[in-house]
Amino acid sequence: MSNAESRRGNLAGWAFIAPAMVLLGLFMVYPIFWSLWMSFQTGKGLNFKFGGLANIIRLTKDPVFQHALSNTMIFLVVQVPVMIVMALLFAVALNNPALKGRAILRTAIFLPCVTSLVAYSVLFKSMFAVDGVVNHTLMALHVISAPIGWMVEPFWAKVLIILAITWRWTGYNMVFYLAALQNIDPSMYEAARIDGVPAWARFTRITIPMLRPVILFTTVLSTIGTLQLFDEVNTITASAGNGGMPADSTLTLSLYIYNLLFKFVPNYGYAATVSWLIVLIVAVLSWIQFQVAKER
């Protein structure tokens, strides 16, 4: 190919990707840099000016932000490990050819993540109401003596949110593990069986290490998802149009950003700062997870 021809080829290539590049630039790259710039602005609404590190200083003194941060971290620390372990156990169980009704169980466990958010939120609200089916069942089974205030007591509200997102996302993660498990050569397990490696060791010493890249992937994904948690706390634990109830006990960083922009007098600069803090936390946590999962 001559130089002129290759230049024409290059031009045609750029022309083909130009529409996508323009859209990405306009609606993604530009806003990202704009929000970074905004995070150094102070002021209400469209009336703002450069404030240097004022927003970051404000973060350190903002009790609502600190509450949202600690709530988010509690969700992260409790929910992600529980969900990952459950997804792993489900995947291993459902990968066993001896199990009857595998296809139905797989579908049943995967279904929540494709269920409409609003529909499931309404159901959860009804099921976990003080006089809802959950309390009735638990009382009938004598697990509890008085109804739990799932949506009124701060502690139980957090438990409810953790239950909801675990229910919704466990099957999603399980599918990744199932796919990875099916790629493991079954003769490896047969070799281990013949060599007298007990079942628990086959799981911890063969399955888990073999799934390590997928576990890392799902952990990073779930961490990001939980740090951005917004849907459930704005629907299930919302009352009178305000999410994160009761008493901000389920207020998350994402919800706080939303409130800063759309519930209170808009403060674009401060909201952008909180957004960038989430980015920073995601980056740090992902880096740590990659370090931990690195092959030694």
């Binding site: 050569d185 003769s187 490896m188 047969e190 070799a191 069986r193 013949i194 060599d195 007298g196 490696v197 063969i206 290490p209 073999m210 390590r212 092959e295």
Partner: peptide, 19 residues
């Protein structure tokens, strides 16, 4: 049980533990 039969097996796929 397979582990108690006093046998060892070599597989076509080698079945080595990759990690």
């Amino acid at each position: 049980d397979a582990s108690q039969r006093g046998i060892a097996m070599v597989f076509q796929s080698y079945a080595l533990y990759p990690h």
